[in-house]
Design a binder for these strands. Structure first.
Lengths: 111, 111
DNA sequence: TATTATACCTAGCAACTCCAGGTATAAAGC
DNA sequence: GCTTTATACCTGGAGTTGCTAGGTATAATA
């Protein structure tokens, strides 16, 4: 079950948006959540995740807010924005189109 | 219907293998075939396709053979190899695993 | 006291798509 | 006859994004 790097590449930002839409999360939590939900399949590295979050924030699809824990340590929680929600909707369509196109290649319609 | 570049990225080599498995093809034909079968969705550029074919050949998954047309112009036909067929089977499994993992993220199982 | 878990971050390499360009012949339009 | 389009191959460099490997720091556990 070697996760295919290149498959993940095309969908990681969409997955992040989906997760954060369901519930505001911070980076470290996202890594753990991805891993546990996918039963170990996704294993995002920090070097992948943090830059990705920064890109999403820069694009205005999520917004991060520092929150202090009782013990004084800060965490950066990310929230979905209106634009992020729109993006998710658009990507859902893209995914469908993509899957449809793939199917047409593997099982060509009788011409 | 903007095809998502990064989605394609992860599956282009698998798609090429699938096409060539169905029928030996040459580069230019593959571009046209991809486009017509997918109703315009896939629109591989030459700068994408030819290097990809070379990579697949180098990896021993396909094998190319020059063939002379009656008019004297050469074409390079690519054939699937045994190893290429094995690869296709493996990638089918990877795809299923990937899709399963995705579903677990977008629709988490009740915990 | 040492290790692990939590929590953030960046720099640089690698992989792959695309743009843009190059080469060359055949067919079709004017 | 000449020009454009289609056919058919190719490469170099830029852009995007994942991963490795490293850094910083605190809290909990062994």
């Amino acid at each position: 079950m070697t996760p295919k790097r290149e498959l993940i590449k095309g969908s990681s930002s969409s997955l992040l948006l989906c997760l954060i839409e369901q519930q505001p999360m911070y980076g470290y939590q996202i890594i753990k959540e991805m891993e546990s939900r996918s039963q170990g399949y996704f294993n995002f590295k920090e070097g992948t995740l943090y830059p990705a979050l920064h890109r999403l924030e820069k694009a205005g699809l999520i917004t991060g807010q520092w929150q202090m824990l009782p013990n004084g340590r800060p965490r950066r929680y990310y929230y979905i924005t209106t634009r992020g929600e729109a993006k998710i909707a658009a990507e859902r369509v893209q995914w469908q189109d993509f899957l449809t196109a793939i199917r047409l290649i593997i099982k060509p319609a009788s011409t």
